[in-house]
Simulated scan of single mutants.
Amino acid sequence: MLFLLFLLIVCALLCELVSVKSALSRVSYSCRPSQSVVEPGEEFQLLTTMQNGKWLPVSYLEVVQNLPHDICLNAYLGHFQSDPTVCRLYSSCFLGSRQKLTRRIKASLPQRGRRIISDATITGGDLLGFTRRFRNVPLFYEIVVLPARVEEPALSRALGGFLGDVSVQRFILEDPMLTIGAREYTGREPMKSISWKHSVRTGHLMVKELDHTVENTVTVLLNVEGGSHEELERCFSLTRMVLEALEKRGFSCSFLTNAATAGAIGQWNQVSDGLGSGHTRAILEGLGRATYDVRESFSSLVNRAVRGARDGQAHILITPAPLQRSDAFLAPLFQQSQGRLFIINAREDGMSSQEVSG
């Protein structure tokens, strides 16, 4: 009997010794969001996985997960602690031999911006609960919250009228890339429109007959210089409203901004012409990542737009500060767009817009 008791004690000590050395051996942990891009307040899930890859059970495993400070954990009954910089989510469990445990936690984020799910700390206890071992688990997952949608009926009507005018004028403007034939020179056409090939063939001057442009295109400019954080948030939301209106009406659009972005999204400060939900979604993700930092001055942004614009290209300008047609740095943009310029400003005392026409 004493020998059996001694044998049990020796086995327990051996198991304890093994468990101390291998408390976190072959124990893995991960936490990732179910979606990488969400709406403000939209519910998503945090998927946490704890796995024991060895035959010996883990009698106690504690996880402290770092989450964005403003995350809302919906209906979560466990323990979490928030401060101005981070939210810490605490959980613990027992993991049996080669057991995998997955949990789904409902969460949401209230405001626009880029959030990070970062490192976690896992703690493993020995078999008898005398000692603990710690390990840091490096994690990096992004969650981008898009700008909130805004409802501005008066602005929507004014924007709709401007886009309607642009749509009508596309049948008036000729596309220099689409030649459908030639006709006789009347003396009123510019010299650059003369088709020398047709003139030689017929023996008298002929001019190229051009087709009309077949695509509605608009350039959207977003300026973030000179605005408060509240005004810039309104600018981001107004830009979203404009982009979704363009998509709904079938307009192709390009996008330029002087806003800086957080994260690896590439050269988002200039997005070439595109059409469809995927194109709009890419710009909206950039708006979600945008910070309040300014990459370049407002005047430099306008000059960059002028250099890349075609004659008669319609422009929609969103800015936090009121502007006037008399502003000198706007003159080249007004001239390049041939007066087809729509300005939206977001002020603390309300939103306003103005259509600048020739």
Rank of each mutant, 00 (worst) to 15 (best):
A305T: 00
G263V: 05
D126V: 00
E43G: 11
M177K: 09
K21Q: 15
G339R: 00
V220S: 07
S277L: 15
A12R: 11
P147W: 06
G308C: 06
I71T: 02
V302W: 00
D293V: 10
L221C: 01
A158Q: 07
T217Y: 05
M351N: 13
I180H: 06
L67G: 02
S36A: 14
R170Q: 04
S277C: 15
S297I: 08
W196L: 14
C235P: 12
R347Y: 11
T49V: 08
G41L: 07
L159T: 02
T121Y: 03
R281G: 12
S277Y: 15
R183M: 15
K248W: 09
F140N: 06
K197V: 04
C31W: 03
G181V: 05
P153S: 02
D293C: 12
A75S: 13
G266C: 02
L287G: 08
A245D: 10
M206F: 06
A290L: 01
D211F: 12
N136A: 11
A158V: 04
Y185P: 08
A260Q: 06
S300R: 06
Y185D: 01
G250A: 01
R183L: 15
G113P: 10
E348P: 10
G203T: 00
I343W: 01
C93D: 13
H212W: 06
Y76N: 04
R289W: 12
A120G: 03
E244V: 03
G41V: 07
E42K: 04
L14Y: 12
M191T: 10
K248P: 09
A148H: 08
V356Y: 13
Q65I: 09
Q338G: 07
G263M: 08
V18M: 15
G288C: 13
L13W: 12
V20R: 08
V200C: 06
K106E: 13
V200R: 04
I172F: 06
R112P: 05
E247R: 08
L56I: 05
F342D: 00
